[in-house]
Simulated assay, not measured.
Amino acid sequence: MSRHVRKAQFVTDRTNLYEDITRKIIAELEAGSVPWVRPWAAAKAPLALPHNAATRRRYGGINILILLGAAVERGFSGQSWLTFRQALSIGGCVRKGERGTTVVYTDRFVPAEEIKRASTAGDEARAIPFLKRFTVFNTEQCDGLSADASSIAPSSHMVEPQVEALIRATRIDFRIGGDRAFYCPRNDYVQVPALAAYFETINWHRTALHELAHASGHSSRLNRDLSGGYGTKEYAFEEIIAEMSSSFCCASLGIVPTVRHADYIDSWLKVLREDNRAIVRAASQASKVADYLLGFLPDLGVGAPTLVDDHEAT
């Protein structure tokens, strides 16, 4: 198969994937359900992000949303997943007739003919994108697995000290006061009202994580575009990232996620309807933000994504 044919096939597969995922998430938002919050509102869904039962690594990017949605839709009580071969490798098997869930991995590679061409022409070899789809199964669809294969070790810390420790460890200028929560990109500081302003203590922590997510975009950190003013598509896109990453952090820390800005749903829908790649890019960015913030708590044991790659949303 030629390089041009492979590239065309990749573009087609990727476009179909974006359209399928975007169409589903738009439908959920239109119905008033937020995909990155809903899973933990269901009685069976545990407070954890999807992880691979064989490698113990957490999934990342759009695969988080795919697997969270599958767990809720199909009534799984766990967030542990593995491939057919991985189930066999750890002594179990997928039950006959079980239907798997598709996750994705994208990257780039340089084929041998391209290396040869570049060498002959004196050019730099060009990498070709590729997309792989993997079928994974929830551990509840398997037999013969050990008890610990479907579980992930819970944190031994209380929620509040963890969040407070994370705030200190980031060294982000975090100010308490005023009557509203926000991040100021120009002066690089976060401000959140005092704890007494919140009906529940847990809401203060949710808000803090949301604003820290925004702060992660500063040029000295993850360097995202924070120039969009209120009401712009850029602003709405950044809010999607902050909302998602906050929910991912909450789930990892044992905090039930909520939608902090439900009134933004209309602006989110506008962004997603205009660009079928937006949700994939946002999920990828949100996953990076969560990994960045949770990385300040090394004892949390957060692993790197297992089947997703930084090239996922390119």
Rank of each mutant, 00 (worst) to 15 (best):
K233F: 11
Y230F: 15
V280W: 05
A27M: 10
L82A: 08
T55W: 07
G69C: 06
Q79G: 06
V280C: 11
E160Y: 12
K132H: 06
S150C: 11
F296C: 12
T306E: 11
H261Y: 14
E113I: 06
C250K: 04
I240K: 02
I172C: 02
I240F: 03
E19L: 12
F130A: 04
C250M: 06
D179E: 15
V308C: 13
L17D: 00
R95K: 14
T55S: 15
Q9T: 06
A242T: 04
E312G: 05
L88G: 11
F137R: 00
R281M: 07
L269G: 01
T258W: 00
V259W: 04
L209C: 02
P50W: 00
G231K: 10
I90Q: 08
K270D: 14
E98A: 14
P193E: 06
W204V: 05
A8E: 14
S150L: 01
G254S: 11
V5S: 13
W268G: 00
A169M: 01
V110Y: 06
S252E: 15
G97T: 01
D188P: 03
V5M: 11
V289H: 09
I66Y: 00
H210V: 03
S89I: 06
F296N: 07
R260M: 10
E98Y: 07
D173S: 10
G178V: 10
I265H: 10
R186P: 07
L253K: 05
I265G: 08
R3D: 12
G229C: 12
D309F: 10
V94Q: 06
N223V: 04
G122P: 08
N223E: 14
L253D: 03
H261N: 10
I176M: 09
A121M: 11
A27V: 10
P161L: 00
P193L: 06
E312D: 13
T201N: 15
T12K: 15
Q9C: 04
S150H: 03
T232C: 07
P50R: 01
K288F: 09
N276S: 14
C184Q: 13
R126Y: 02
T102N: 08
N63E: 10
D275G: 05
D20E: 15
F130V: 00
A118E: 10
P154S: 09
A304E: 15
A71N: 01
T170E: 05
R57L: 13
N16M: 11
S252P: 05
T170Y: 11
N63D: 11
G75V: 01
D188M: 07
A121P: 04
L145H: 03
T101R: 07
L68A: 11
Q79M: 14
R108E: 12
G75E: 12
Y235T: 01
K44M: 04
A112G: 02
N187S: 15
G100C: 08
R224E: 02
D188W: 07
A53R: 00
L297V: 09
